[in-house]
Amino acid sequence: MSEPESEPVTGSVNGSVSQPSLRAERVTVGYGTHVVLSDLSLTLPRGRFTAVIGPNGCGKSTLVRTFARTLLPRSGEVLLDGVPLGRWKPKRIAQRVALLPQSPVVPDGVTVRSLVARGRHPYHSALRQWVPGDQEAIDVSMAATGVTDLAHESLTELSGGQRQRAWIAMVLAQDTDYVLLDEPTSFLDLAHQIDVLHLCQDIRDRGRTVVAVLHDLNQAARYADHVVVMREGQVAASGMPSDVITADLVRDVFSLECEIGPDPQAGTPMVVPLARS
C-alpha cells in the first residue's frame, strides 16, 4: 500500500497510438551482496518470439524476473511503454507482462481449470473477483494449449508435459502483451518440447511478444525469430539466429568447440560439437 499509484495509459498519446514496449535500461540486479546482472540494457522486440540462451548461472532467470518485476533492480530501470515499472501498480504490470517461473510450486488439490483461472487475478479486486472477459480468456487459453479435456484433473496428477501446458494456459489467461517463459521445455520429452515451441510460435502469431529461456541452441535457432545470448550477467549478442549463432560465439560463451551447419529442415544454424581429439 505504498507505491505511487500513477496509472500509465497505453494507447493514444496526442492522438497517435503508441506501441507497447518493454526495455531494460542499465539495470544492475542481484541477490543479497551477489550482483548478477550489471549495467545491462536490452529491448525486447515487439511481436517476436525471443529465445534467451546462455550457460547455467549466467543470469537468464534473473533477467526475466527483472522484466516481470518479481525482482527489483538496484539501479537502472525497466520501462514498460516508456514508464518505469516502479511507477506501475503491481496488478497493472501483471495485466501487461506475464511470467512463468522456471520451477513453479505445484499447488495441492487444484484443478487445471482453477489454476488457469488464477491467471485472471490481475483484473480482479477484493470485492470483484470476476470480470466479463474471464470466461472467454480461460476457455481460449485452455483450447490453445490443448488442456480443455483436462479441466477437472488435479494438477498434481498430470504428466510433466500436461502440467507444463496447464501452466502456459495460466499465463495466457493473463492476456498480456508480453509472455515470459523461463525454461518452458526443460524436463519434457522431445515431442513435448516441440509442442511447447510450436505453442510459443502460435502465441506470437496471435500478436503477443514471447520471450522464452531455452537451453537447446538448435531449437532456439529454429523456432525463435530473435535470440539474446547471455554471458556472466551481460548480453553477449542479440539478433536474428542466423546472424548471431556462430562457431566463434559458441566457443566464446559456452567454451565449446563446434561446427555450424544448416538445419536440414529449416536451414537455420545447427550446432554440432566437434569430436574429441
Binding site: 524476473r65 506475464a98 511470467l99 512463468l100 517461473p101 513453479p104 488464477r118 487475478h121 477484493a126 493473463q174
Partner: peptide, 27 residues
C-alpha cells in the same frame, strides 16, 4: 482479513508466481 483473501488464494503458487500475478506476496 477480507481485503486480503483474494491475494491469499495465490499464495500456494509460490512467491515468485504470486508476485508475477500482481499478488504482492511479501506484502
Amino acid at each position: 482479513v477480507g481485503v486480503l483473501t483474494h491475494r491469499l488464494r495465490l499464495m500456494d503458487l509460490g512467491d515468485e508466481l504470486a508476485e508475477a500475478l500482481g499478488g504482492r506476496a511479501t506484502h
